[in-house]
Nucleic acid binder design. Structure first.
Lengths: 143, 143
DNA sequence: TAAATATAGTTACCTAGGGTAATTATTTTT
DNA sequence: AAAAATAATTACCCTAGGTAACTATATTTA
């Protein structure tokens, strides 16, 4: 499938810019949204949980969480292990999640306009399979 | 198609990192590769041509081209319009293009492992259609 | 159980990559 | 000829992430 990367990456800037514009109404960016999304869908989490989910380093998540604390969208709660910082959504965080979720879903429908349901399904299921192939390749390298 | 953006963007860092690693063997990154690729496939081009192709601002391309000049992969040639800077590949640039093209194509095949040809085709054709939908949306906004 | 090791998070510093506004040189329009 | 447009550049700024070193706490192990 020569040219796949080009097709894939050609869409990236358009998509991320569009999402960031949408989210800027809530003083968020996609990278901040990822954290809100993760906590909403996995419950109170540690920074390591989040870093592992998105394959980024811990300082990256430290920064994102600090920003979200400033925005009062998340707060820290006490846990057993005093090394850990467990964060959860605030009430405001929940509200902003709902509002963004709706607008993002709307955008997802808009940009699928005219594309058959079956085609959408194929794309939806194939992208994670490609990602698995990358992981497999990484694994091979290490062994 | 709720969750599409997540699926799409989840792959991004994996993919771009993998490509940048591959290209680092030639002191390139994907953003530099785009310029080499464009010139190879469109012939000698101006900076504006390239900026338009990738929807980035001119200074971005100025920087990329300067870097490629340092690497001696491109050179400037004279044109009619003396405002323009027309750049073309050097012999070294051609060689590096061929080498990278091969390695990128190999990677493209690797990460499609186990994915049926028909599914690959659907993804391949659907991504640009999604991009068109974004453009259409942008257009609507302006009017 | 004391010492060694591992883990969670932070800080400071660095890099990649791109944007905006202002500027220069040249060309095109009026 | 003067005004407007265009191509490229420069200077400055922003976002986002990485690495290495460090602190505090928890877990292993000898």
């Amino acid at each position: 499938m020569e040219g796949f990367f080009q097709r894939y990456l050609g869409l990236y800037r358009t998509l991320i810019t569009s999402l960031n514009e949408l989210l800027s109404a809530y003083e968020l960016s996609y990278s901040l949204w990822q954290v809100v999304f993760y906590i909403k869908n996995n419950g109170p989490s540690t920074l390591v949980d989040i870093a592992n989910q998105y394959n980024v380093e811990k300082p990256t998540i430290t920064r994102r969480v600090h920003r979200l604390e400033e925005l009062q969208l998340v707060r820290q709660i006490a846990g057993q292990d005093r090394r850990e910082k467990i964060i959860q959504l605030t009430e405001l965080g929940e509200e902003v999640y709902q509002a963004c979720r709706k607008r993002i879903t709307d955008l997802e429908f808009t940009i699928m306009d005219g594309i058959a349901k079956e085609e959408q399904e194929v794309v939806f299921h194939t992208l994670p399979r490609i990602q698995e192939n990358f992981k497999k390749k990484e694994g091979d390298k290490i062994e």
